[in-house]
Design a protein around this nucleic acid. Sequence first.
DNA 1: CTATGTGAAGGTGTTCACAGCA
DNA 2: TGCTGTGAACACCTTCACATAG
Lengths: 217, 217
Amino acid sequence: MERHDMGTRRIPDTTIRRLPAYLRALTLAGHDRVTSEVLGQLAGYTPEQVRKDLAYFGAFGTRGVGYDALSLTKEIRHILQLDLGVRAVVIGAGRLGTALVRHTDESSRDVAIAAVVDINPAVIGRQLDHLTVEPLDRLEELVRERDIGMGIIAVPPQGAQAVLDRLVNVGVRAILSFAPKALVVTDPTVFVQQIDLTLEMQALSYFVGTSQRSGSS
Amino acid sequence: MERHDMGTRRIPDTTIRRLPAYLRALTLAGHDRVTSEVLGQLAGYTPEQVRKDLAYFGAFGTRGVGYDALSLTKEIRHILQLDLGVRAVVIGAGRLGTALVRHTDESSRDVAIAAVVDINPAVIGRQLDHLTVEPLDRLEELVRERDIGMGIIAVPPQGAQAVLDRLVNVGVRAILSFAPKALVVTDPTVFVQQIDLTLEMQALSYFVGTSQRSGSS
DNA sequence: CTATGTGAAGGTGTTCACAGCA
DNA sequence: TGCTGTGAACACCTTCACATAG
């Protein structure tokens, strides 16, 4: 019996990362009943994988029938804490940061961007949709005031580690970084997901000639 | 030079994905000699991991000493085919596509954006740095004319699969997709890397409360 | 008779520990 | 001596196969 909710085995990260895909698949299915086969098809995984992933959290399906789309959606949203309305702060209102704010605003109402900050006086005060770019100095203040639980780092490499440290210090436990730099986290209660576009494209270059199978984020 | 002929061990994707990080670490190190320890430190991996990854491609180091930064850089660049000057096309000149073009232009001269296309007449003809947004119709033409080996998909979900198929048909083997949709590839010689920001953030939401360790892309 | 839930088997990548060489 | 290169042990996921329940 491991730590985590009572009775649960340790959940693989890989499982967590697939849950949002199932969530999307459920909306695509449309039907009120879905099998692991259909769900897998739509999400891009095998039926066995779907069943095993879901089974980590409970027996949500009905044998011989499948899953109820509505209640399964609720379950997954609950597991991912999406039903709590997560709020995020974007640090860095440059090209990428701006695109992220607008992108997120349009496509994902599950994770709301609740604040945008930047260090550059020239962009502070600028309006991004419904948000005003705030000074980086106010980061901690904003996190507390607006009950922010997620940080999205979109600053140049030299400032990234400092921003990460500040986020961790003020209690943010889920961080997504687009900074082109390897960030270090010591605190084991903090989860940092790094997406490095430069690295990603350089790796892709390997497959330009003769190549192999496909992968996902 | 070592060639991976018949007896070729298969190279793990995970190894390929770490090579660009080593490349960056080498530039950060500055010294002409680097140990796997330093390299690992800078790239965010263990020394053993570094050595094992590099050993897949040959014995680049000197026992008791370490690696020569310059020649190791050359080797890795060669493995990733970065020394061939990869050219990419960006499909979709919306917020994300635009940000990608400019971002890449600034930070990674190893993979050059050689064309940008869009389906929307309102943005076709617009200038993005040194590139003009071309009509989507010209995709195949452009890929051939400009010897493009990589595709970057930044279009809405409904158009993504069609774009992918067209890229594959015209011979592009390395594809990066930001479309919020699971894409299907049958051709085993094609490598598709999918980065889905919505999914990424929803997964991150799981870690907002009490959490675990850190991960990378 | 169907589709889930799950122990067992299999595969893949990482860590360990040390042999090998400068 | 010091650090690389690597088989072997290990941990982690995925796939398989089937018992299980509606």
